[in-house]
């Protein structure tokens, strides 16, 4: 139970924080059509976060609701991967971040369909449909940027080099994931990694982009240790709840 709760926070926080990042772009996209598309993804992610937190809050059983989990934890209590809190940067940074994440999430949700926890399976089923679309969207953009102009290729390549170090964390497992994998609630995340790599490479090949060689990895977001960006993101996210505590909106 406690393990499931923690795992739900990890994937729920991924959804919320990335949804929040994409929400920053609403009204500022490179063209109206893409503005609308990115907002749709943001909306899907916030919807996923709401479903995941609702179940997490129920498991926690302390009378907190989804909003309390979303808005009223301390920074180190958020367990999202560091990848998703990275700033939007330019359009290539945004889309490469999205692409790395979408491939992982699609693989994860596919496996969670057969979770021994029925609620987790139900959440995965709904989210998977959305995620498949997100992946289609982000993959095609990675290809367009990689195989577009010199400048777009350079920016896409730079985004890959820059964000690569945070991808390993997506497959992080500690006692929580190990126990849950044993119980069949979640897959062994380490098994997803080669599949992820294969999928990422297949798209990057089409996009004529490369992976960095011999680059190390970093990321402790799953344990609540975030980048400097996180505090500012939370300052906005939590602003109303912190300034006006205990009110209905």
């Amino acid at each position: 139970m406690e393990h499931t709760y923690k795992f739900l926070l990890r994937i729920g926080d991924d959804s919320l924080i990335l949804g929040q990042r994409l929400a920053e772009l609403c009204g500022h996209g490179p063209i109206l059509e893409e503005d609308i598309a990115l907002t749709n993804i943001s909306l899907d992610l916030i919807g996923q976060a709401t479903n995941i937190y609702t179940y997490a809050a129920q498991l926690e059983g302390k009378g907190r609701d989804a909003d309390a989990l979303a808005f009223l934890r301390l920074e180190h209590q958020y367990l999202n991967a560091i990848l998703v809190e990275q700033p939007n940067g330019n359009f290539a940074d945004t889309l490469v971040r999205q692409f790395f994440f979408d491939v992982y999430r699609k693989l994860l949700f596919e496996q969670l369909l057969t979770s021994t926890d029925e609620q987790v399976a139900a959440i995965a089923e709904k989210s998977l449909k959305e995620t498949r679309y997100h992946l289609k969207h982000s993959s095609e953009w990675v290809i367009r940027l990689g195989d577009g102009t010199e400048l777009s290729k350079e920016r896409a390549q730079f985004a890959i080099l820059d964000l690569w170090r945070y991808t390993e964390e997506l497959f992080y497992m500690d006692e929580t994931e190990i126990q849950l994998a044993k119980a069949g609630v979640i897959p062994n995340l380490q098994d997803l990694k080669p599949l992820w790599m294969e999928h990422v490479l297949s798209i990057l090949n089409i996009a004529t982009l490369k992976l960095p060689e011999n680059q190390g990895f970093f990321g402790a977001g799953r344990q609540g240790r975030h980048s400097e960006y996180m505090g500012f993101l939370l300052a906005q996210l939590q602003y109303m709840q912190r300034v006006y505590p205990n009110m209905q909106w």
Binding site: P30, L145, G148, L151, S152
Partner: peptide
């Protein structure tokens, strides 16, 4: 700003 920062993106998609 949105238009200028999006210029290279729109160009890339057309080039592709």
């Amino acid at each position: 700003k949105a238009k200028e920062e999006g210029e290279w993106v729109r160009e890339a998609a057309m080039a592709y």
